[in-house]
């Protein structure tokens, strides 16, 4: 949300009606400036450049997952993510924490049910992670702004501010968020000292490896994928690979009808 509008709303003494008004303004703003018309100002494939603070909407980070390339049974992306992000393994699903994992195609795309689908897709397992939505409902509901959207589109978590109310988990339509139901530290096999561990009682999720982006590296899952099925980049840069892939292929997103504008595109 842009600052001037936020200030305006604050001054206006927002009431419950104000929340609705805010939504309307949001919708109008989206209609007024279609994202495709944003000037071709960033001509870089360089992720470092993408990180530099620029005018809003210049950078819009997104991921393209080529399901045709993604190999069945391969969990390299998941393993890499778990390892560098100190994801615990509790050995049971109740307390489970996951940033990237695989779901059957039919479950990941519940609303795109089709009869007699290609067997190849029907039984396919699809990598899913936080969609880092352009209009994230989790950010909207968080009472402390512990989860927030950066200008480049990454939806971040502040683990020191989160009060653990889990409203974001109720709001997320993708089941992308995990909660630390108990102390995760004893369940991390090899702690990576370069990345923080979390404490019990806070929510976490995929953040497109922001810690790697700031060093000019690609997200870990993108880097390790042996099939090069994952592509990451700035969607507002017409020269970016993500843009080319989307232009040349048919893509789908998860639950686009909810208006969240997920930033993960699947090529089928």
């Amino acid at each position: 949300m842009d600052k001037s509008r936020r200030n305006f709303l604050k001054i206006a003494g927002i009431t419950a009606l104000g929340i609705t008004a805010d939504k309307l303004v949001n919708i109008r703003a989206q209609q007024a400036v279609p994202k495709q018309n944003v000037k071709d100002s960033v001509a870089s494939k360089n992720i470092i450049k993408a990180q530099k603070p620029g005018p809003a909407a210049e950078v819009r980070l997104a991921m393209v997952v080529d399901l045709r390339k993604c190999k069945q049974g391969c969990t390299k992306c998941i393993d890499a993510c778990n390892k560098i992000h100190n994801i615990p393994d509790f050995g049971e699903p109740k307390d489970e924490i996951k940033w990237i994992w695989k779901e059957p195609y039919e479950d990941a795309f519940l609303d795109q049910e089709n009869y007699y689908m290609k067997d190849e897709f029907k039984n396919k397992s699809v990598p899913v992670f936080c969609n880092n939505c352009d209009s994230p409902p989790c950010v909207e509901v968080c009472p402390t702004q512990a989860t927030f959207k950066r200008d480049d589109g990454i939806v971040m978590m502040d683990w020191h501010r989160c009060i653990g109310c889990r409203y974001c988990m109720a709001a997320c339509p993708y089941g992308s968020r995990s909660f630390n139901w108990r102390d995760p530290r004893p369940f991390i096999k090899n702690i990576n000292p370069d990345f923080p561990t979390r404490m019990k009682g806070v929510v976490e999720k995929c953040e497109f490896c922001d810690e790697r982006l700031s060093k000019g590296l690609l997200p870990a899952c993108v880097e390790v994928c042996p099939e090069k099925a994952l592509t990451f980049g700035n969607l507002n840069d017409p020269q970016a690979d993500v843009r080319k892939l989307l232009k040349e292929n048919f893509s789908v997103r998860r639950k686009p009808g909810l208006g969240t504008n997920p930033e993960i595109y699947y090529l089928v």
């Binding site: 949300m1 927002i14 929340i19 509901v141 702004q145 501010r161 409203y167």
Partner: peptide, 22 residues
């Protein structure tokens, strides 16, 4: 129900008008 009950004051320290919880 809070995972971090000692941080409950954060609701007032960072008032968030777009959150219904607030």
């Amino acid at each position: 129900d809070l995972g971090q009950p000692f941080r409950v004051a954060n609701i007032f320290l960072y008032p968030t008008v777009h959150s219904l919880m607030f």
